Deep mutational scan, measured.
Amino acid sequence: TEKEKEVKRLAKERGLSPDQVRELAQRAGFSPDQAKQIADEFA
């Protein structure tokens, strides 16, 4: 999704850790499970 792409782009730009990616995703409105899946891509 657009929102997911945006979260991943920000995460890459900022060099976020997987935990930070998960927090960012949840703040963007993703469920905890979705946020974990997104964060796992950065693990």
Score class of each variant (00 low, 15 high):
residue 32 P to H: 08
residue 17 S to V: 05
residue 20 Q to W: 04
residue 13 E to M: 10
residue 8 K to M: 09
residue 36 K to D: 12
residue 39 A to Q: 03
residue 38 I to S: 01
residue 7 V to H: 02
residue 1 T to M: 13
residue 12 K to R: 14
residue 36 K to W: 13
residue 12 K to E: 07
residue 22 R to L: 14
residue 6 E to C: 13
residue 38 I to A: 01
residue 35 A to C: 09
residue 6 E to D: 07
residue 17 S to D: 10
residue 35 A to H: 00
residue 4 E to T: 10
residue 7 V to K: 01
residue 15 G to H: 11
residue 4 E to Q: 10
residue 5 K to Q: 14
residue 38 I to W: 02
residue 10 L to I: 15
residue 27 R to G: 09
residue 6 E to A: 12
residue 36 K to I: 12
residue 38 I to F: 04
residue 41 E to W: 09
residue 28 A to I: 13
residue 28 A to V: 14
residue 10 L to E: 08
residue 6 E to N: 06
residue 7 V to F: 10
residue 41 E to F: 06
residue 16 L to I: 03
residue 23 E to L: 12
residue 6 E to K: 06
residue 42 F to L: 11
residue 38 I to Y: 03
residue 7 V to G: 01
residue 30 F to H: 01
residue 19 D to R: 10
residue 34 Q to A: 12
residue 23 E to K: 07
residue 15 G to F: 05
residue 1 T to L: 14
residue 39 A to C: 05
residue 21 V to H: 00
residue 36 K to V: 07
residue 36 K to Q: 15
residue 9 R to V: 04
residue 7 V to W: 05
residue 23 E to V: 11
residue 12 K to F: 11
residue 41 E to V: 06
residue 34 Q to M: 11
residue 13 E to G: 04
residue 12 K to H: 14
residue 8 K to A: 03
residue 31 S to A: 08
residue 5 K to R: 14
residue 30 F to S: 01
residue 10 L to S: 04
residue 43 A to E: 14
residue 23 E to I: 12
residue 39 A to V: 04
residue 36 K to H: 10
residue 25 A to Q: 00
residue 23 E to F: 06
residue 38 I to K: 01
residue 1 T to H: 13
residue 42 F to E: 03
residue 25 A to V: 02
residue 1 T to Y: 13
residue 11 A to W: 04
residue 3 K to H: 07
residue 29 G to S: 02
residue 25 A to P: 00
residue 4 E to A: 15
residue 33 D to Y: 08
residue 26 Q to P: 03
residue 3 K to L: 15
residue 27 R to T: 11
residue 35 A to E: 03
residue 12 K to P: 01
residue 35 A to L: 02
residue 29 G to I: 00
residue 20 Q to N: 03
residue 26 Q to F: 08
residue 19 D to I: 09
residue 1 T to F: 14
residue 33 D to M: 11
residue 23 E to A: 11
residue 35 A to V: 04
residue 29 G to V: 00
residue 30 F to C: 04
residue 33 D to R: 09
residue 43 A to R: 12
residue 21 V to R: 00
residue 15 G to A: 07
residue 37 Q to G: 06
residue 19 D to S: 11
residue 17 S to R: 10
residue 18 P to V: 11
residue 17 S to Q: 08
residue 24 L to D: 01
residue 8 K to F: 08
residue 40 D to L: 14
residue 9 R to S: 05
residue 13 E to S: 06
residue 9 R to G: 04
residue 12 K to Y: 12
residue 20 Q to C: 04
residue 41 E to Y: 05
residue 23 E to W: 08
residue 39 A to M: 06
residue 6 E to Q: 10
residue 5 K to E: 13
residue 19 D to Q: 13
residue 30 F to R: 00
residue 22 R to M: 15
residue 12 K to T: 08
residue 17 S to H: 09
residue 38 I to G: 02
residue 10 L to D: 05
residue 3 K to P: 08
residue 40 D to S: 10
residue 36 K to M: 13
residue 1 T to P: 13
residue 28 A to F: 15
residue 1 T to G: 14
residue 11 A to L: 02
residue 13 E to W: 06
residue 10 L to Y: 11
residue 5 K to I: 12
residue 33 D to G: 09
residue 16 L to A: 05
residue 14 R to Q: 15
residue 19 D to L: 09
residue 3 K to F: 07
residue 6 E to L: 14
residue 25 A to N: 00
residue 8 K to W: 08
residue 15 G to Y: 05
residue 4 E to F: 12
residue 13 E to V: 10
residue 33 D to F: 07
residue 28 A to Q: 08
residue 15 G to P: 01
residue 30 F to G: 00
residue 15 G to T: 04
residue 40 D to W: 14
residue 22 R to D: 05
residue 40 D to H: 13
residue 25 A to Y: 01
residue 30 F to P: 00
residue 2 E to K: 09
residue 2 E to G: 09
residue 14 R to N: 13
residue 27 R to E: 15
residue 7 V to R: 02
residue 8 K to I: 13
residue 12 K to D: 04
residue 41 E to Q: 11
residue 36 K to T: 13
residue 36 K to A: 13
residue 17 S to G: 07
residue 40 D to K: 11
residue 8 K to G: 03
residue 18 P to Y: 15
residue 23 E to D: 13
residue 12 K to A: 11
residue 25 A to S: 03
residue 16 L to V: 01
residue 1 T to K: 15
residue 42 F to Q: 02
residue 18 P to T: 09
residue 43 A to D: 08
residue 28 A to P: 00
residue 25 A to D: 00
residue 31 S to Y: 03
residue 16 L to P: 01
residue 5 K to S: 11
residue 21 V to M: 04
residue 29 G to R: 03
residue 35 A to S: 06
residue 35 A to F: 03
residue 7 V to E: 01
residue 24 L to Y: 05
residue 32 P to D: 10
residue 27 R to N: 13
residue 20 Q to F: 04
residue 30 F to T: 00
residue 28 A to G: 04
residue 30 F to Q: 01
residue 19 D to W: 11
residue 14 R to P: 03
residue 20 Q to K: 06
